[in-house]
Amino acid sequence: MTGSNVVKLGIAFLMYFMVQVFVLKDLVLFGDAFCFLYVYAILLMPIEVRSTPIMLLAFVMGILIDVFYDTPGMHTGSIVLLAFLRNPWIKVNTPRGGYDENVPPILPNMGLAWSTAYTFPLVLLHHACFFYLDFLGTSVSPSIVIRILGSVLFTFVMGNVVQLLLYTKKKGI
């Protein structure tokens, strides 16, 4: 990984955080569908990055988001879980012939089928974890399912739009 690549990733990390906290925090569709776009900051890290740095980055991101959302530990716990499962999940999804060197796992590079198989389950798990923690201690109503599915769809669509518009093939951003 080259130096300019690290800078780019750092800027992307900050952008995801700022967009999440300043724009998407106030954007909740129908009172149920949340957009936690910041999970893509972790999901779209290059494939070569090891588990340990990924988890530490996720932890930092989670705490930053939690501070602004006033949801202590909820985002942190969910995103660390996602980061822990990310690399094993990438391994499971290895296409025939393996991954190319220095290619981030983004939609323009990998195609819709692989990208969906990679991101959708992880995003679903993150959202399920977050809303489970949110509903903890209250009477769990069927609305949690609507909330999880609505938010996963919203995040997933937004994530794909962002990848198509802002990422170019074969390169970082």
Binding site: M55, F59, F84
Partner: peptide, 21 residues
Amino acid sequence: IRAFLLFVGLELVAAWMLLNY
């Protein structure tokens, strides 16, 4: 198993934040 241990450690910190708030 360092990755798993780190994972458990970070999740414990998150749980501690949640319970203490």
